[in-house]
């Protein structure tokens, strides 16, 4: 039986094709523009120099080190907190209104604009606790920002661990902690890691909260201590983009190439972890 030609069928299908092509096109244009403008300025000096008023001498050394500090310290705070909260919600919390309230709360926290976390960090870490405009304040603010992402990823990964494994472990007389530690966590680890990597790549790209807590944009020294002031790549980029001179825009595009190199490779790593995880689940 031959199918009748249908304009409507083609229309629906090609709207979909067009939408996907448009999105992919945006991605390609975006990357092309950045690489064309950014690659020429990407010399070794650029990575090892401090920022400068003279575009020819300016570099991102202090921003790179600052980004690394923020990344490590944010990971240090947010991973244990996020994973532990996820474990509590999935494994220990009784199914009652308290648990539901906490879940709704976390879903809402994940939708709070980053600049609001910045206001919180400014009021609590910088002023109230007196950590000043330091790496510590920045990392704590960033940790609160990405905490919901890690919690949600953890609960999803834990939910995917089959109940039968838990029952088997309880059946030989294990305690809840032993079941979680030896069976649930190892099985959920790839999923948790995917979420953690995505969350940290978000932390690297975010700048609004750090601007709020007053991360300096002109830092001509390397921070040595969590209480030192700092700048990060994304703030350095913001600073250069907001200047009118073309030369600084060129610097910004080179810095963006570096920033994208870091965040996109983290995204790829996360996608790789996730597909491996899905395959393993499917293969059981």
């Amino acid at each position: 039986m031959q199918r009748k030609f249908s304009f409507e069928a083609l229309f629906v299908k090609y709207c979909g094709v067009a939408a996907v092509v448009f999105s992919l096109g945006c991605l390609i244009v975006l990357l092309t523009v950045i690489f064309i403008n950014g690659i020429p300025g990407l010399r070794l000096d650029f990575l090892t120099h401090f920022p400068s008023r003279f575009p020819a001498q300016a570099g991102i050394f202090s921003a790179l080190i600052g980004t690394f500090w923020i990344l490590v310290m944010t990971a240090l705070f947010s991973i244990p907190l996020g994973v532990m909260t996820g474990i509590y919600l999935e494994e220990l919390a009784k199914d009652n209104w308290v648990k539901r309230l906490i879940q709704v709360n976390i879903a809402n926290l994940s939708g709070v604009p980053s600049v609001v976390y910045g206001i919180l960090g400014l009021a609590v870490f910088v002023r109230f606790l007196g950590f000043d405009r330091s790496i510590l304040s920045g990392a704590l603010t960033m940790s609160l920002l990405i905490l919901p992402i890690i919690i949600i990823a953890t609960t999803e990964a834990i939910r995917a661990v089959p109940l039968s494994i838990r029952l088997a472990a309880f059946g030989v007389g294990a305690s809840p902690r032993q079941v979680i530690w030896y069976h649930v966590l190892p099985e959920a680890m790839p999923g948790i890691l995917t979420g953690v990597v995505l969350a940290l790549s978000r932390a690297i790209g975010e700048s609004a909260p750090l601007i709020m807590i007053g991360a300096l944009s002109f830092v001509a020294f390397v921070p040595h201590h969590p209480l030192d002031s700092f700048t990060v790549l994304s703030i350095q980029i913001f600073n250069w983009v907001s200047r009118p001179q073309e030369a600084f825009h060129a610097l910004a595009s080179s810095a963006i190439v570096v920033l994208l190199g870091i965040t996109l490779s983290m995204n790829v790593l996360a996608i790789y972890l996730r597909t491996r995880f899905v395959q393993r689940r499917g293969g059981d």
């Binding site: 494994i165 472990a169 059946g171 007389g173």
Partner: peptide, 26 residues
């Protein structure tokens, strides 16, 4: 209690570990 009252389930549910570890874990 469960160390003294063991259980075998409807569907085989070995741990995703080695045979040795399956028995040694408990």
């Amino acid at each position: 209690l469960r160390r003294h009252i063991g259980m075998v389930f409807q569907k085989p549910n070995p741990f995703p570990k080695t045979i040795f570890e399956n028995i040694a874990w408990g």
